[in-house]
Design a binder for these strands. Structure first.
Lengths: 224, 224, 224, 224
DNA sequence: CATGAATGAGCCTTCATTCAT
DNA sequence: GATGAATGAAGGCTCATTCAT
């Protein structure tokens, strides 16, 4: 696992317990991420996690009351990280930079998400696999999205619609289409086909162009 | 479960055993689809499946040697059905109908896939969830796609590129983008948000328009 | 299995049900003998027996109420056959032939038992394996032996002791030693090492000589 | 079960795991020996073993990966013990003691084997019952016998043949007859009829005398 | 704090036996 | 009489979780 991952894991534990993070905990989390990603939550055994982490079986349960707790301690923070930061950090600047074109916005977002997915590929896989079976996770994600993301996105869309860069179709549909393409790109690149050769720059450009053109107002219909 | 589902299950069993299908078998499959979809394969218990099917646990194993066999008897046929028919049945006609525009082609495909997903929503969910953990399934899908789908799609893309309806970008990228949007539409519509209200006709039109415009040759760049 | 075996099986069934013996029954018994011998009673499955017999699973239970019944229908007659006939048929003549030497008696018995074991090897194996776990079988064998065999054997022993061919040691001990050697010979020859090459005539002679000499009165001690 | 048995079990576990032996492990082994002996391996249930051992069923599988492992951990050491020690310990001295008569050799061996069988009666019963169904066990026994026992025995036989105490018949046959009688004595005494009253000293003497006389060179034939 | 032995519920699967056809 | 689908009890084994050391 990458060094970056470790850093993230460290942050992760700090967030949960704001205590000192022992190596043991880190090992457990690392092992858990590995095994959950490989076999899925239900088929993963705590004993295998313990083994890979180099700790006793009981030790896991000193830090995480149940196996599910262990899962949540990994996934929950990612939900907040996945959709949040690009809004909180990057987007703020994007939005305030009024002169930006929609194209540049897209490019920034796509680039940002690709970075993110590269870093968290394994955990995102876990998240994707487990969300259907854990209503709390689903609820949490839904809540986060509706509360923090949707409104802001709608604002952004309308902003670019007013600038005439996006056709006057419902914001929700614009989001659906845009997110579909970006998410697919990310998933294909870092989750499904991370082994295949990718000409990243070209593909990014084509994805951006695709969205921009796809959403551009119709010369005959929308404009004028 | 819908009546249509039952018909499909019936076909399914016929394909496997080309015998008469008993009600019991149907019940077992129905219950298995339900429980697998709800809890995932690993967390599903054969005893619950038996209970929901109203049969003894042993009965399941008379028809399916193992729990995994039961899974495969559900998923395998769908792999062949998911990517196959739209090419073999619908597309043939579309392709031979030379006058068709790319737009019409897309509309037909999207419509067709939406129908399919509506019918098989639950099983598709199972398939999506289990594919990462069952290499044979993954291999089978991969093989099917590369052998039967990709080449044909490339041919179609090039056809429309020659007609000037699609920009001269790599066929693979065209496929990636198009499939991303169509698949996302289908998944959002019938897998993730099947409960939400959908104005289907409008959304279909917007999806089609999005793709068509997104892939259209640039007036300044590609044309001329 | 040999033709001889089939004949025996036919007799066997006749004894039990004194009805017509169908091919089906014969097949079942044949299969049962095979599977019991290979895997042992407990590890043998009625379904495998049915399969090998080429009948339906249920058919077995039409003829034999339980799996154990099937076992008993095979073993019980053999108990009577194993120890009985050589007394009832052959021995009578042996005994009445007063001029016989002990040596000739032994040779006749050993030869007879070898024939028997060759014919029934598989069933004897089953019997040996199962007797410890089926008290009724054990009891039946014990009863048969004590009632029909022991007394007669004692008579024979004493007969030869009076003739001065056997030392004056307790008849029980004589029986123990003689039967040990004969049984061992038979078991080694037809149960344990039936594949190995045997120079039967020589070995029989040496076994007979061993017993005769071993039991012969001591020139110094017993005689006189 | 006897105290001696416990000691043996303790050694047994030590050999396997060279760790301290817990009471629990001893209880499990004790119970396993009991149940296997009573019902045979296939018909013995781990749940009954657990119950008799006073432990949870899962506990068994912490110490022995499978039910068969449990069997092997009991039987395998006995194979080495059964045929080995009397050669390695007792026989060495017997052989080096040149003045010994064959008779004394036999007496020593028989006595030694009786002691051994008394101690391990139950386990020997298990071994005898299970060997036909476990090829590895059979192979191990065969290997041990051919490698360690046969050659030495042949040497001993020839030694006494040269001293004129044993007739000049093939060593293999001598072994077959001798081992038959000794093994039968042991089996009858401690495995089959351990409840019956035995006048051990007398029977031992008669067995020894039987073998010695049975194998003695014929005055008229072999000698001279 | 960490350990790992112990637990016991629960899992998948087998199998002797029954019974409607 | 024969069939074979159905049964459900029981089996071996796994695993999350607890707790004495």
């Amino acid at each position: 696992m990458s060094e970056r991952m470790d850093q993230w894991l460290t942050e992760l534990v700090r967030l949960n317990e704001d205590d000192r993070v022992t190596d043991r905990q880190l090992n457990i989390l690392r092992a858990a991420v590995e095994v959950f990603a490989e076999k899925g939550f239900a088929a993963a055994s705590t004993s295998e996690i313990a083994q890979r982490a180099g700790v006793a079986e009981g030790t896991i349960f000193r830090h995480y009351k149940t196996k599910k707790d262990l899962l949540l301690s990994i996934t929950v923070p990612v939900i907040d990280e996945f959709v949040g930061p690009f809004l909180l950090r990057d987007l703020e600047t994007i939005l305030t930079a009024q002169h930006e074109r929609f194209e540049d916005f897209l490019r920034a977002v796509l680039f940002n998400r690709l970075q993110f997915a590269k870093k968290y590929a394994q955990v995102l896989r876990i998240l994707a696999q487990e969300i259907p079976f854990h209503p709390e996770l689903k609820a949490q994600l839904k809540q986060y999205v509706t509360e923090n993301v949707l409104k802001r996105l709608v604002g952004i869309i309308e902003h670019f619609q007013e600038k005439g860069e996006i056709a006057r179709i419902p914001a929700r549909t614009v989001i659906r289409l845009t997110v579909s393409v970006i998410l697919s790109h990310v998933v294909l690149r870092h989750i499904l086909f991370h082994d295949a050769p990718w000409r990243d720059d070209e593909e990014i450009e084509m994805t951006v162009r695709f969205i921009v053109q796809g959403l551009r107002p119709d010369a005959s219909r929308d404009q004028k």
